[in-house]
Design a protein around this nucleic acid. Sequence first.
DNA 1: AGACGGA
Length: 506
Amino acid sequence: MADTATSTSTSTSAAAAAAEEPPPQEAKKATEAPKRWADLEDDPPEEPSASSASEEKGAPELDVENLAIDENRKINKFLDEPEDSNIKAVTPGDTPYTSASTFEELKLSPELLKGLYVEMKFEKPSKIQAISLPMILTPPYMDLIAQAHNGSGKTTCFTLGMLSRVDPNLKAPQALCICPTRELAIQNLEVLRKMGKHTGITSECAIPMDSSNYIPIYKRPPITAQVVIGTPGTIKKWMSVKKLGVSCVKILVFDEADHMLAEDGFKDDSLRIMRDIERISSNCQVLLFSATFSETVKNFVSRIVKRDHNQLFVKKEELSLESVKQFKVNVPDELSKVLVIKERIFEFGERLGQTIIFVRTRNSASMLHKSLVDLGYEVTTIQGALKQEDRDKIVKEFKDGLTQVLISTDLLARGFDQQQVNLVINYDLPVKHDNRTEPDCEVYLHRIGRAGRFGRKGAVFNLLSGDMDQMIMSKIENHFGTKVAEVADWRNEEDFKAALRSAGLL
DNA sequence: AGACGGA
């Protein structure tokens, strides 16, 4: 699996190691030796303005806050690696974190190492893991805001963090992870159970029970699982009826944190949970993970966590995955979108791997579903109004490879990990809920990240009908500083072939 | 609008 993303020595770090002139007897291993980030500051000189957090260009109005937060921090370097380039690390003071080139360096338990190597088949930490895990696992266990590319292994970071900080002998909830969807909670729990298989650590999913075997929480015994992963409503509920005690919780994770802490409906519950836990368990470590943190959210969340915290950020221009080729397809009207899918994409059949088609509303999900089924295609559709049993079934069928094409609302836009997905189709572009003429660039990035997991090849087709779509698309391109190639003629099969070929899918 | 709950 490419999550074991290689490279511990890069051109920059090798150059830096050479520059520091290690003692002769160690020279041979110089590029492998653990390096303090501070050792790497002789990297390509940063612009003077980049030496403080105010380097965020075009945001002078944020400077005061940024400086207040960051003046005692140190920007260590712009890490430079192909698969996860330019992660900017900011740590308070001089905390000497060492990037971990192996899992052994992290002093994990033998049981956990076994899970990593045998169950997960990992070899060494990916970039984001190498940087974030020492921050997570080293006392004084500071809070962390971590941004990293889609499919780069964020889940492993916080899952490993939770598993290694739990005391196996203490039978009480010690780690909590909060996710925006039930599907993501389930998926994260599956990863944690697999990784922690040999540790004996217990875990439970905090999502609403399906109607069939429903037992109200107040009739159930208190939760004793050591790790609890779930959705905010249910976790809040369990806490409020005293079935989920948090006095022993020492690590609290927000997956898709920008969404959890900024979005109405999530924000209140998330903050409430965080405050309640911090009141009872004062030194609880908070980890915020996401592929996206818009400037405003970044600013907001850095004030939510403790003043002394670590940050890892990626420039938005560097966030689009190189391995996933994006295309735009101009079509005359909504109806021809179905034709494009039918005649220009489905014609390639299973050669493209699995496909997710994103739509804006539940309604258009149903409509598109019906259109494609009427044309004789086998597609499934998932959205939040379905019964949990049906949601589970559809996800399972897709993950088992039994279905090829899945229509989804933004329910699956974030975090959904299915490595066989090579193609993402934006049937509707992601737009802001309060202003549909503006793109939602964060959602766009998450959607396209469903393809090309762990560095695999992938393609995205954005179906555009009309001037509005084209304008929104160009705003997305401007935001990420990318040029999205155009499929010249939607009726021309060769144009699509060429696109898919250039994406490496044919 | 869609996700989160639970009335």
